[in-house]
């Protein structure tokens, strides 16, 4: 029994290292202009999603906001597919059609990757509604940031979730800033968890820099929800080391504040716990870290050498089972005809 737990914790530490090293590479590649659009890094917050994943079943539903690389990696999406998605390549987890903010992986029950703040909280309600409708004991884990709690969709969703007693764990990853606006400047509450009280949803506060605390609290909650479907709210206090996105120097906070949190790093903390307990040697840790770095670098190479989707494929992802308009050939059919040597029919627009 103890062995399993020990193995799990080392695995989870390795996962946190993978996320950290993957994101460092992503940051470097963004600066090298290999990655487009916006890119929001999760560095510093790794214990939140890894703690959650350690507490739930593989078939539970996970949905999050736009700071989503860590969530996909934690859920089991391959680092290659994640990096290729950032590069916009066909081998990406969404074939390069979603990008950094829209990671989806149906096979691993990762339901996005949603970039309109708060707009995915109603989706989580719907996923949990479906579980209850089908009388399954699945739990939906919905992550969002402290910025989401002032959005209307969040409030409507919380009321619906509480009203229908839906099996959702609402996880507020409170990293103290919604972009550059501190919680103190955005939210009238003394503490975020009090939002839950307004909807009669039980709430807890957890230290998000402590993997074990996150995992243990969520295990307890998820076990209770499986027995009897109900919502729960957890404010997980964490910190992002980087700016809101790659273009943000984060001048709205002090170096001292950042250093304070860096000393409380979730990876260092779990490593220290495991080392103290004799479950991890320095050599083992170094090997894990080396492997994480190698995996991240290999992902970059994979992404660089991957192809992009051909442009005409865009028409295939507007609707399932096209063609959109009767009589109009699907672009894929046109391509097929071209390959067969027939002249392409003239499409009307």
């Amino acid at each position: 029994m103890q062995r399993a737990e020990q193995r799990d914790e080392v695995e989870m530490l390795a996962l946190m290292l993978l996320i950290r090293r993957f994101e460092e590479r992503a940051s470097q590649q963004y600066q090298a202009q290999k990655i487009g659009g916006f890119c929001h890094l999760y560095i510093g917050q790794e214990a939140v999603v890894v703690g959650a994943v350690a507490a739930v079943r593989d078939d539970d539903y996970i949905i999050t906001a736009y700071r989503d690389h860590g969530h996909a990696l934690a859920r089991g999406t391959s680092p290659n597919a994640c990096m290729a998605e950032l590069f916009g390549k066909a081998t990406g987890c969404c074939q390069g059609l979603g990008g950094s903010m829209h990671f989806f992986d149906k096979k691993n029950h990762m339901y996005g990757g949603h970039a309109i703040v708060g707009a995915h909280v109603p989706l989580a309600a719907g996923m949990a509604f479906a579980s209850k409708y089908r009388e399954e004991d699945r739990v939906t884990i919905c992550f969002f940031g402290d910025g989401a709690i002032n959005q209307g969709s969040f409030h409507e969703a919380l009321n619906l979730i509480a009203l229908y007693k839906l099996p959702v764990v609402l996880i507020c990853e409170n990293n103290l800033f919604a972009m550059g606006t501190s919680v103190k400047r955005s939210t009238s509450l003394k503490q975020i968890v009090d939002r839950a009280e307004g909807y009669d949803i039980p709430g807890d506060i957890v230290d998000g820099m402590n993997f074990r605390e996150v995992r243990d609290k969520l295990s307890e909650i998820v076990t209770s929800i499986r027995k009897d479907p109900h919502p729960a709210f957890v404010e997980i206090r964490t910190y992002r080391y980087r700016g809101h996105s790659m273009s943000d120097p984060a001048s709205y906070r002090t170096k001292d504040e950042l250093e304070k949190y860096r000393l409380d790093d979730p990876i260092i903390r779990l490593r220290a716990q495991l080392t103290r307990e004799g479950k991890l040697t320095n050599e083992q840790f170094d090997a894990l870290d080396k492997k994480a770095k190698e995996t991240a670098l290999a992902a970059v190479k994979f992404a660089e050498s991957s192809p992009e989707l051909p442009v005409e494929k865009v028409y295939d992802y507007a609707y399932l089972n096209g063609p959109m308009e009767p009589g109009r050939p699907r672009p894929a059919d046109l391509e097929q005809k071209r390959r067969e040597g027939a002249p392409a029919p003239k499409a009307q627009s």
């Binding site: 949905i63 109603p122 989706l123």
Partner: peptide, 14 residues
């Protein structure tokens, strides 16, 4: 907004 989104989420899972 809430129940339209709930519908979208329910549709995502079948």
């Amino acid at each position: 907004n809430g129940f339209a989104g709930l519908g979208v989420g329910a549709a995502m899972v079948g």
